[in-house]
């Protein structure tokens, strides 16, 4: 790791002001992405501003039909939260299959979506549920927030404060784990909103990051059942391919994971 200066912010305002004062600062949440990258010397922030201890970035709120998860809430806290389990059990399940215990104890929803790894789990949930990303400056629809591999609508120094999810009628998530990293080799989040809209998002599959899957959405809109997806064909073109999965395999997984997510949806 290169030399860096560590700051622990006690409020979002303080974090913003610290960011403004340093030349090349980075926010730190769970550190599960940022720290390994720094250790490999692939990032060299002059300052690291820890958001992890900021009270206003912690916790979950359920109010009416909106579930709000604050940005620095860890996966473990999300997974074990009673409101999450009640309102959107698919999110509790998603966090339970995310990474390994060490990652779940440290990693945060805010860090996950800010990083927008093409194989991360949460982006699929946000996109399928039509969530809104709240920052210190504005609200951004999930659709507009994710902008391709590792890229988001966040501006320099902008802090995600929370994510709010409309509580769906039904939602489910299923993922094929990457054998080495446990990221999503491909994961599919399916949701049926209270107004009857069907939204399906796949992660780990596309070369351009998390994506909606219109063909499956249409099939499920007509008939919300796993077998409705049988006849859907997913093209392998534009899908990721690596040593753990060919593009054809991922195309298959988009279908199979969608079917299983529908079967598991509640």
């Amino acid at each position: 790791m290169y030399q860096t200066t560590y700051h622990r912010a006690s409020s979002v305002d303080e974090a913003v002001s610290l960011f403004g004062k340093s030349s090349e600062a980075k926010f730190l949440a769970g550190g599960q992405t940022l720290l390994p990258v720094m250790k490999q010397r692939l990032a060299s922030p002059s300052d690291v501003i820890d958001l992890g201890k900021i009270k206003e970035l912690q916790g979950v709120e359920l109010s009416g039909d909106t579930l709000t998860i604050k940005a620095a809430t860890t996966y473990y806290d999300i997974m074990t939260n009673a409101d999450v389990k009640k309102a959107i059990p698919a999110i509790a399940y998603l966090t339970s299959v995310l990474g390994d215990p060490a990652v779940r104890y440290r990693g945060t929803i805010g860090g996950s979506i800010a990083n927008n790894d093409p194989a991360a789990d949460f982006p699929a949930a946000l996109l399928a549920l039509g969530a809104t990303v709240k920052t210190n400056k504005r609200s951004i629809a999930a659709e507009d927030f994710f902008q391709g591999l590792f890229s988001t609508a966040l501006e320099d120094g902008e802090i995600i404060t929370a994510v709010s999810f409309p509580v769906p009628a039904k939602a489910g998530y299923e993922k094929m784990r990457h054998p080495a990293s446990r990221f999503a080799l491909t994961g599919v989040f399916v949701a049926q909103t209270k107004s009857g809209e069907v939204r399906v998002a796949a992660t780990g599959a596309s070369q351009s990051g998390v994506m909606r899957v219109p063909a499956i959405e249409a099939a499920l809109k007509a008939n919300w059942s796993p077998s409705a997806i049988d006849s859907v064909s997913i093209s392998a073109s534009g899908l990721l391919a690596d040593i753990h999965g060919t593009a054809e395999y991922r195309a298959n997984l988009v279908k199979v994971m969608a079917q299983r997510a529908v079967a598991a949806a509640s």
């Binding site: 094929m176 054998p179 080799l185 753990h244 999965g245 060919t246 054809e248 395999y249 298959n252």
Partner: peptide, 8 residues
Amino acid sequence: ATPDRVWR
């Protein structure tokens, strides 16, 4: 015998 290889 990765899942991909077995599936193929």
